[in-house]
Design a protein around this nucleic acid. Sequence first.
DNA 1: TCCGATCATTCCCCAGTGGTGAACAATATC
DNA 2: GATATTGTTCACCACTGGGGAATGATCGGA
Lengths: 295, 295
Amino acid sequence: MDRFTALQVFRHVAELNSFAEAGRRLGLSPAAISKNIAELEAHVGARLINRTTRRMALTEEGRIYLEHIVRGLDAFSDADRALSPLRMGPSGTLRVSAPMTVTLTRLSAAIPRFLGKYPEIALDLQLDDRRVDLVREGFDLAIRGSDHLEDSTLIARKLAVMPHVLCAAPSYFEAHGRPKAPPDLRSHQCIRFSLSGHADVWEFKKNGRIERVAVSARYSVTSSLAVRDALREGFGLGLIPFPYVENDLREGRLQCALEDWRTVETTLYAVYPSRQHLAPKTHAFLDFLTEEFGQ
Amino acid sequence: MDRFTALQVFRHVAELNSFAEAGRRLGLSPAAISKNIAELEAHVGARLINRTTRRMALTEEGRIYLEHIVRGLDAFSDADRALSPLRMGPSGTLRVSAPMTVTLTRLSAAIPRFLGKYPEIALDLQLDDRRVDLVREGFDLAIRGSDHLEDSTLIARKLAVMPHVLCAAPSYFEAHGRPKAPPDLRSHQCIRFSLSGHADVWEFKKNGRIERVAVSARYSVTSSLAVRDALREGFGLGLIPFPYVENDLREGRLQCALEDWRTVETTLYAVYPSRQHLAPKTHAFLDFLTEEFGQ
DNA sequence: TCCGATCATTCCCCAGTGGTGAACAATATC
DNA sequence: GATATTGTTCACCACTGGGGAATGATCGGA
């Protein structure tokens, strides 16, 4: 039986002192009211309402029961109401995981604007290049740089594609020469971003031809920014997302090599647990992200 | 949908951190658990639990919701528990309405024994010769002297039949003579118990013949005990339940007349609102009554 | 690395439940 | 007395809530 409606019926009947009136309020037939009360009494094992066709009054049991019931029902409507602000406007605490580098280079400057737009949102932003477990660690959303398809039941929205470029400092090219084709890389000093899915093997394409080069690197590091720093110092060649070195290239601090070859690209995804019942706060942040990376 | 089970499911899932385990505890299939949670989320309009097949964690909404829900569910189990003492042993307050006279003559002496036997019962005994409205005034049980069938939806259990006798004091008979047949009563001084259903017309039967006498009385009173007092004083003839005058007759203070005619009788009923879910306290009192009147 | 076990979800199917509407009995009201 | 209202009961029925199996994902261990 449906306890919940039975209890609601009981409450209405008790407070309105009438079966028929309760039925009208709840949009139920008199028959339904009668049955609900009877069921509830059967469940409780006690008569709750003494009644004839014209009069009705709670029994002692009924009074005691009602008292508790009302507390319970109120708690439930409170529960629904407690969620409505979170459902209405974007508010609450938003837990986001994002990789350090991409955040610092492309996002963190814009975040105050986001927080300014949604004063009800508190942002807990965890910068971490690990691939975090969304649900285990309770994140609402994560940003991931991924080069392969998403694996799990999570939802992924593509934010941006970051093509990689092979580059080094002018001083490096002067000292070691400039590679003409991918295989030349074997004799070069390569700097490796170790968290990349293609850290060990660098891939180049031209005219449908694919060249793979197993890279041996004396310097592996878990941040592309550290790679960039090393590149600037002329320590070696690196494969690095274009946006990170855009300024360096324009201003001549770094130069590209093998520009006629296409190489890997990192796709940036926003990942979240489910598309259903997406919380407004999460929705707002998603919009912010797509807008921010969309330009 | 059944909110109640959905909420129970949600609580179990949240506290056990597992859909499957919750299913086992509640005796439900995994499918049912899944559906319940999905329904609840649809009702609430927010995702309550983030989940993959292996991990699950409450969302912010889920935590808030759970907090309220638990209060509500606890209130409900409290409600059930609050009634169980009333269901188990006879206890609580028992409200009984009874006619003054029959109580004083046949019951009140035994009541302390009843209360001694059931220490958890408090008795609120309203002595009132009115015909009270059981449910309107919130009685658990009423004792009624009735000479006609019960009229309403109430349940009536027969307690005793009290035949009436026509009697008066010896002094009265000496002064006014002894009636030989019902019609003689017209010339007698009659004392009337005005609450009786047959106060105006006294009925006598013999050999299937029925005699009705319209009684004119100078003294009408609402208590049979007052009638008895008047009879003892030799003021007139009265039709009165036999038990009330049993001692007087045995000891010669009063004498019968028309003993070869059968006259009306009052049947004593215990009346209560319903046979279903009879509270133990009421049951105990009913047993007490039948025992007390049964001898 | 592969296989078996476990978990949540989805689909389909079905019994059982809660609902309605009408007939009914009791009782207020006019 | 006639009428209207109320709570109960009885069929009847749509629909829901549950089980079972298949599916996809993930974990743990060999």
